[in-house]
């Protein structure tokens, strides 16, 4: 399928074209930038929902149930399920589909498994662009399930309109709930595995933590109990998602969120450009080996050495 065919295909609802376009973006194939640039112009309709939380809290199963229910309510749904790549072989086992039996048997729900490919923060570099492709294809809701690597996995808030943090009973005490990072980015909290005995207590602890927060920040984050396994609490969660989507569209909150997203994407892309440029210039520069040896011999502190290299680099740039 050639380039223009793919763009036309995506706009006219050809799933093969969408799947192929995702591969192009994932692999940075030739033309990928042109593809996403063209697609970007028609984007901005879908409700992007991020689902994050520790491994084993039941994210995949929950995503599956939420997707099925949303689909039954007449929404079109796409899922991006991210699993980790091996830092040694770069390979990955993408196994989220095992827990997504409902969505898997429903060809109307588009599921794409993505490997994190060395990216930290729970996403993969291409996820933003993949979301845009699915958005333009016409999906009403795009569910992004993050890797689930732990407390600092907050990248998703730079991509999603709504972030759901999933936890499960027995993962930690109330101090855990007060920690910075992942606990702060939730628009909705879900205590999954509510079929387990201490679920209520976990929900209470989170609620107490949030109460203090809400006094300071003047916003209320709902805490819900679900059992994805027993298909309980899902309708309540869907209702909260719909209420939030309505609310952020009415109050102008959506614009604020998308403003933050755009700022983030633009600065990150710029950083990446600068970084690779500077890396090329400095790592291949004449001084590198010498300075590096001095750092290894403990003659210069690494930060001081970096300052030195950077100053020299700026001077050289100014001379050109």
């Amino acid at each position: 399928m050639e380039f223009l065919g793919i763009i036309e295909g995506i706009k006219s609802g050809n799933k093969r074209a969408l799947a192929r376009a995702i591969t192009i973006v994932e692999n940075n194939e030739e033309n990928y930038l042109e593809l996403v640039s063209k697609i970007y112009l028609s984007s901005g309709k879908a409700h992007i929902i991020g689902i994050t939380g520790s491994p084993g809290t039941g994210k995949s199963t929950l995503v599956d149930r939420v997707a099925s229910k949303l689909h039954m309510d007449g929404k079109s749904i796409a899922i991006i399920a991210i699993d980790p790549s091996s830092p040694f072989s770069n390979g990955a086992i993408l196994g989220d589909r095992i827990r997504m039996s409902n969505s898997q048997k429903n060809p109307d729900i588009f599921v794409r498994s993505i490997a994190s490919r060395g990216q930290v923060g729970g996403l993969s570099k291409s996820v933003g662009n993949i979301t845009t492709l699915m958005d333009v294809f016409g999906y009403d809701c795009i569910l992004i399930e993050t890797v689930g690597s732990g407390q600092s996995e907050i990248e998703i808030m730079n991509l999603a309109h709504t972030t759901i943090v999933v936890t499960a009973p027995g993962l930690g005490d109330e101090i855990q709930a007060q920690k910075s990072g992942i606990m702060e980015i939730a628009n909705l909290f879900v205590v999954n595995k509510a079929d387990l005995p201490s679920a209520e207590m976990t929900a209470n602890q989170i609620q107490q933590m949030l109460h203090t927060e809400s006094v300071i920040k003047r916003k209320k984050v709902p805490v819900l109990l679900t059992s994805a396994l027993e298909d309980k609490g899902i309708e309540d969660l869907i209702e909260k998602l719909e209420v939030r989507w309505d609310e952020i569209n009415k109050t102008g909150e959506r614009e604020r969120i998308e403003n933050a997203h755009a700022t983030y994407k633009l600065t990150e892309s710029l950083k990446e450009k600068f970084l690779s440029y500077i890396e090329n210039e400095i790592l291949n520069g004449a001084e590198w080996n010498d300075i590096f040896k001095q750092v290894m011999d403990r003659k210069i502190n690494p930060e001081y050495a970096a300052n030195h290299l950077f100053t020299r680099f700026l001077k050289k740039e100014a001379d050109v």
């Binding site: 093969r16 086992i93 196994g95 095992i98 898997q104 060809p107 588009f110």
Partner: peptide, 21 residues
């Protein structure tokens, strides 16, 4: 990168996975 599923897949499921992934 390996997509791994549970056993007992139907033919139409495998076609669907192959297409989407």
């Amino acid at each position: 990168e390996v997509i791994y599923t549970s056993p007992w897949q139907k033919i139409e499921d495998v076609v669907n996975i192959t297409l989407q992934e």
